[in-house]
Design a protein around this nucleic acid. Structure first.
Lengths: 187, 187
DNA sequence: CTATCCTTTGGGCAAATGCCCAAGGCGATC
DNA sequence: GATCGCCTTGGGCATTTGCCCAAAGGATAG
């Protein structure tokens, strides 16, 4: 059975989004063009502006979708933690899966930067970040860690900061140090 | 007395570097062109490639110089700390001077990203980062904080991570949480 | 068969890009 | 005054950019 035109259209749209997710890390957000993304997707250049209002709209949809999938995956993993120390170890292990120069890391940083110049993107990306921080904060609160909201903010900042620094060179293991952040012992 | 041609040349060079430092945060690294930087500097377009081997070389020199000045300034401030807690407070205060969307913060993130695609830049920026981490680590060691190298790496990561997240929205105060990282009390 | 609807094609447009270069300006030195 | 060396000008080159659009394709409904 042949597919309908609308079905083929959805498939093309999907391919364009996938191509954008590959090219943003490879070339940088502002260096991805309509023609390169169309070529990577294996479709004609004109289709970019048929399926999306603009190049920016395609890049934004592709990036936000990818980042949301990433943090949702990590969020599920973190549910397994039964103690604050386990939580920190899981976060550290998740960070260790990224080198700072891999496509996923670069896509994240590129999107942070693009959000700086696109209010709509900023809002969407901010929502993804909030979702992650809220999840961590809830676990910390249930586990009796003081200042759960600020602590979650610090852990999230460490994750992105380490990714940024890994792109420049080796970063020492941080798990041991982070354990102190959630250690309940007061002097 | 009139200035010599070489003197005027140095002045033009300086103006180009200054223009680049303004434009990279405003437009993004890959969106700064020879013509915009020349116009901002108030010089003819052809001068960019007379004083610099390429646009990239100008941007790299401008960015690395600016970031080195920034972290040197912060490094001096941190010398005042007499205790680990004071050190953390000074770092937190330094971070609070940036909003994540100010020119200095954006220049830093843009440069991190550009370093990903320029090995020379990566090496220079890595050296700046190492200098900062080494300074913090030395102070931590003198103050008896365990694991000074990894602790400094975490503090540096928090600084850049908070800047990144501030660009998207408010971030809770992190000083209190960071105090736990350097608290010497073992349970 | 015709009509309808969505998708696809491929070229066109004005604008901008990095880099180059022949020609000229101008103070320092002889 | 002549010569030298560095700096400056302004335009030129081929390439690429985002976005647009008239025309064609092709499956389904009548």
């Amino acid at each position: 059975m042949t597919r309908t035109a609308a079905d083929r259209g959805r498939e093309v749209r999907r391919r364009l989004v996938q191509a954008a997710r590959e090219l943003v890390p490879e070339r940088g957000w502002t260096a991805v063009s309509t023609r390169t993304v169309a070529e990577r997707a294996g479709v004609a250049p004109g289709l970019v502006h048929y399926h999306f209002a603009s190049l920016q709209a395609l890049l934004a949809e592709a990036a936000v979708g990818a980042l949301r999938e990433m943090i949702d995956g990590v969020g599920e993993l973190l549910q397994q933690a039964r103690t604050p120390t386990e939580l920190v170890d899981l976060i550290a292990a998740a960070v260790d899966r990224y080198t700072g120069t891999d496509p996923a890391s670069l896509l994240a940083v590129e999107t942070y930067l693009a959000a700086t110049r696109d209010p709509g993107l900023r809002e969407q990306l901010g929502a993804v970040l909030d979702e992650f921080r809220d999840g961590v904060a809830r676990q910390l609160r249930e586990q009796g860690v003081p200042d759960p909201v600020a602590t979650a903010a610090v852990l999230a900042a460490v994750v992105d900061g380490v990714l940024l620094h890994r792109a420049l060179g080796p970063v020492p293991a941080v798990a041991q140090v982070l354990h102190r952040i959630v250690a309940e012992g007061e002097h």
